[in-house]
Amino acid sequence: MSALALLADGSTRPPLSQVVVWLNDPQNWTGPNGLLFYLRQHVVYTVVAVVIALVIALPVGLIVGHTGRGAFLVGGLANGLRAVPSLGLVVLLVVWLSPKIHLLQTVPGVVDHHGALPYLIPVEIVLVLLAIPPILTNTYAGVQNVDPAARDAAKGMGMTGAQVIRKVELPCALPLIMSGLRSSVLQVIATATIAAFAPFLGGLGQFIVNGVQTINDPHTGYPAMVGAGLVVAALALVAEVSLIIVQRYVVSRGVSGRYRKTKAGVHAPDGSVVGMELAGV
């Protein structure tokens, strides 16, 4: 996206067909500075950030939703985090934090450069901060939306607080939690391009950082920028579809409303309904 914006003022816009040519060149995929290498970095940064965000936001959302205490914090925190400019924060943290981290490690299999870790940490912090709000607010809202009668019955039949959360509130809130998770993943995939602004880290944003300097180069310029952008979009799509499939398996049919065909076949929606739902999720 940003690549196109930069080009908008440029006088010499190369034809789009160059992008196709660039993407069709196997060298641009496999080589040491190829798409696959940066794609792997991109995916790792995303997964790490989302997992950390999930570990933080899910329990907090569940507990706040269950107790009803601290709800204003959830709203305030989430909105505050949304307002943070991610690029600015990365720059700030890299300048301020990186010199204080004296772990001169590589990240095996992802970043070979000795001393990359001090730069990775600030970037991951920003990505985690970005991933938390959707998961947190959706988890909270999901628990709040649980039928009060079901919650009352669960407690009344002798479930402890933790059992009510685990056996009733979490499974019922799962559709909303999953959609929060999905928007977190999309946001992080999109924003992980900023990793390239920190030294050594790469990610698919590297093509954009490099391309700005050599915009007219047919190998590293405009075609590479747009090509990488398309790969980011494809990654987002693949992630979204995978998570929708996961959601199908983890969300109870009783909650999602996709009932199995019964013998009488009375309440079973047919295949077309299932298909429609996929589009609507």
Partner: peptide
């Protein structure tokens, strides 16, 4: 209770 309060996911 009045509205049964069944667990929708079970």
């Amino acid at each position: 209770i009045q509205h049964a309060g069944l667990f929708p996911h079970r």
